[in-house]
């Protein structure tokens, strides 16, 4: 039935009809007629191709989420999702906080994602940084972030940064 309908009626018309039926007959049975976006059209972690192919992508960006564990790796490493793993919600919120703190403190300097690795009682934060400020300032920021984050997270925090001279160095391709 729905297949026949879909053949003759355009998507927008179907959606309109769906809404109308919902409004007139709340809870009406419409099984088989679903108008939500289909799964493989998900947009998270995907980038739109530009007309002149000028959008720079890092390796991380160039690989879609389903390629995690095949061609790229996770951005957060922890054991919360394993059997009997603990503190899952706390860890997620802390990771969001760490990412915001890092990108804000290292303003316009991070060229990669902020990778957060948790081992035992320790948090290790890795990433690629642009050599826009001198090494001394980088060391200052490193010490500052390690100390301040450890005061909040109540555990030792270590930064493991790599630097590149040019922003272009991390560009994998243009789309």
């Amino acid at each position: 039935m729905s297949a026949i309908l879909q053949r003759f009626i355009s998507r927008s018309q179907l959606s309109l009809w769906h809404n109308t039926v919902q409004w007139m007959l709340p809870g009406a049975e419409l099984r088989g007629l679903h108008t939500t976006a289909i799964a493989n059209k998900a947009q998270a972690g995907r980038y739109r191709v530009t007309r002149d192919r000028s959008r720079p992508l890092t390796y991380e960006m160039a690989n879609q989420p389903f390629k995690i564990a095949h061609r790229k790796s996770w951005n957060s490493w922890n054991t919360t999702s394993l059997l009997e793993g603990m503190r899952e919600p706390e860890t997620v919120v802390e990771d969001i906080f760490i990412r915001r703190f890092m990108t804000g403190t290292w303003h316009n300097l991070f060229l990669s994602e902020v990778i957060i690795k948790r081992q035992h009682n320790m948090v290790r934060i890795a990433g690629i940084v642009h050599q826009k400020i001198n090494a001394q300032k980088m060391y200052f920021l490193t010490g500052y972030c390690e100390e301040l984050l450890s005061y909040w997270l109540k555990c030792p925090v270590k930064l493991e940064l790599q630097t590149v001279t040019d922003k272009q160095d991390v560009i994998y391709k243009y789309i």
Binding site: Y139, L141, T142, C145, E146
Partner: peptide
């Protein structure tokens, strides 16, 4: 680095 820690 230590100066950064002191700032924190």
């Amino acid at each position: 680095k230590e100066s950064g820690r002191k700032a924190a």
